[in-house]
Design a protein around this nucleic acid. Sequence first.
RNA 1: GGGUAGAUGGCCGAGUGGUUAAAGGCGACAGACUGUAAAUCUGUUCACGUAAGUGUACGAAGGUUCGAAUCCUUCUCUGCCCA
Length: 376
Amino acid sequence: MSFECLTTDSQTSARRGRLTLPHGTVETPIFMPVGTQGTVKTLHPDDLVALDAQIILGNTYHLNLRPGLEVIEHFGGLHRFADWDRPILTDSGGFQVWSLAKLRKITEEGVRFQNHLNGATMMLSPEVSMQIQATLGSDIAMLFDECPPYPCDEKYAVDSLALTTRWAKRCKEWVESNQPRSGDGLQKHFGIVQGSTFADLREQSARELVELDFDGYAVGGISVGEPEHEMIRAIDNAVPFLPKDKPRYAMGLGTPPQMLEMVARGVDLFDCVMPTRVARHGQAFTLDGPIVIKNEKFRLDDRPICETSPPQVARFSRGYIRHLFKANEMLGLRLLSIHNLNFYLRLMEQARAHIEAGTFLDFKDNFIQRYNRKSS
RNA sequence: GGGUAGAUGGCCGAGUGGUUAAAGGCGACAGACUGUAAAUCUGUUCACGUAAGUGUACGAAGGUUCGAAUCCUUCUCUGCCCA
């Protein structure tokens, strides 16, 4: 059993779990920093270890394009290539089909697209994606799905979901004929629930995937520009049909309050570019909500970013970090990236502790109330 | 002293009779960002007004013209060249 549910919250659907993977154990609920191109932007792997990041992401589309499989194979897989010996989850490239939409054509076989680097025509299919992820050697490989846009009409959603399900079967068949049957050291495979904003489709998708039996289940098709209530609905419409003894992953989420709401609904895994991207754009998360460090009001502010800042960031004043951003200095990007990832990781750490202590609901409500309160 | 080029909004810099409150860049001030084509993108940036608009403004003063940042005169200042 690779996933163990240790504690279940009595007031919410939150659970405290443990996921055992080839490169280590992951305590859930957990946030997974995004390292698309084999690096969490601006950070050294030692930084991630210092922040106690337990698992990070890599991306099939991007890594296949550059440096290319031959290079990664030469270096013995993504872990050795990037010198990261903890777990890695790789996304299948399905999201890039959506985000690079102008350059692609979806067929039964897969997706034919012009890559964004040199425009060459390439093909990504269930088999190709699984093959690439196997070569990357990630701990968790995501199935190749189609991520429908938002908004999305029902006809499109029905057809798209049917395709995603057929692709899921092909992914499973590829894995069964190319990888050993079982074992703790084996790559895990997560199915992705689609169905857009339609409750019946979400349920159908979840049931079909569970029927196929994967190691874990993700909810996809969210974080594509939909309003927050649709995001939450998508989770509510899918989670009840997912097995309790398998990990659940909300793809691409979210803000700190969103993650806590999702934990309360029984989600175990999160990933999001937000903490690292907005950090590079000068935004920092604090217990009182996000702040834009570039704002003039921080010019003479000698306080640290937030009481949650780790020591390597807390030693610097807001005024100094503001200066780094105004002067375009790289250290600023790095400091806020560290700060924001720490904020996300500690938030999940606290969520785990409160689930164990039976105080999660109060913790969540208090956190969100303070986070959303308008203050300077 | 002679010659020559120039003086534009916080800075740099287009513009050489009307469509110019004046391109563009920088700076400044805000905003956005959710399975990363993102150290990116968007908005604002003379004054007053929510706005229509009004007033000032392209070194200074005067002039030509229906109309001038743009043409003419004088002056001031700056760069370069020659003595």
